[in-house]
Amino acid sequence: MYVLQLLVGAIWYSAAPANITQQIEGSALGGISTETVIGFCVALFFYTCFSAWLLAKTNLRSSFERLVLTISSWLFIVLPNVFFVGMFVDFTHMSVGYLMSFGFISCLIAAFILSFWRSNRSIFKG
């Protein structure tokens, strides 16, 4: 699942509209560096582990309930970042939406794979 999320992230970034990549390269981020890519990989790994841990520690019985929990975690944890990104970065609403869309795509991948694949729930048992 982690590799699938990395692959989707690479495709997502390569398909970014030109105005977004120009804003990223012109901002304080200074373009996509090796440190940025490593940071992205580490953050995605921790997000995936957190999602698996959260699902393992809840007593939800159905896969649908676990799917809703994973998507809800994105809605209530990640989605408020739209407000903060809009305050601190001079991006258009469309650019902010595009930047936050990968989080939603990654959340959907985690929700469908972790919620329905039984072996992922046994990682954090005990």
Rank of each mutant, 00 (worst) to 15 (best):
126 G>P: 02
122 S>L: 12
95 S>P: 01
26 G>V: 09
107 C>Q: 07
53 W>D: 03
47 Y>H: 04
8 V>P: 08
118 R>G: 03
30 G>Q: 09
107 C>S: 15
92 T>V: 07
25 E>S: 15
28 A>R: 11
58 T>V: 13
119 S>C: 00
97 G>K: 06
102 F>E: 01
119 S>G: 02
18 A>V: 13
64 F>I: 14
30 G>L: 08
63 S>D: 07
99 L>N: 08
48 T>A: 10
19 N>D: 15
19 N>K: 08
51 S>N: 07
100 M>H: 05
20 I>A: 12
123 I>R: 03
68 V>D: 04
99 L>F: 13
113 I>S: 07
119 S>V: 11
56 A>R: 05
54 L>Y: 08
39 G>K: 07
125 K>T: 13
12 W>E: 12
10 A>P: 00
65 E>P: 00
28 A>I: 14
38 I>R: 06
113 I>L: 11
120 N>H: 12
11 I>K: 09
110 A>F: 00
98 Y>S: 02
18 A>Y: 06
35 E>V: 13
49 C>G: 10
125 K>G: 06
123 I>T: 03
89 V>Y: 14
75 L>S: 09
39 G>C: 08
106 S>M: 12
114 L>M: 04
32 I>K: 08
80 P>V: 04
4 L>T: 14
25 E>F: 06
2 Y>G: 08
108 L>I: 13
40 F>D: 09
108 L>N: 02
114 L>Y: 14
124 F>G: 03
2 Y>A: 07
39 G>I: 11
14 S>R: 13
93 H>A: 08
100 M>D: 05
120 N>Y: 15
28 A>P: 00
106 S>F: 08
121 R>Q: 14
62 S>I: 05
39 G>S: 12
28 A>T: 12
17 P>N: 09
116 F>M: 01
66 R>E: 00
116 F>R: 03
85 V>W: 04
55 L>I: 10
126 G>F: 06
22 Q>G: 14
32 I>N: 06
107 C>P: 02
86 G>V: 01
5 Q>I: 12
5 Q>F: 02
76 F>I: 15
14 S>I: 08
87 M>D: 07
31 G>I: 11
59 N>L: 06
49 C>R: 15
28 A>V: 13
34 T>R: 05
54 L>E: 01
64 F>E: 05
4 L>D: 03
51 S>I: 05
32 I>W: 10
44 L>G: 14
76 F>L: 14
88 F>G: 08
59 N>E: 14
66 R>Q: 02
101 S>K: 09
55 L>G: 01
37 V>R: 06
81 N>D: 07
49 C>T: 07
3 V>H: 05
65 E>M: 11
121 R>T: 08
96 V>I: 15
105 I>Q: 04
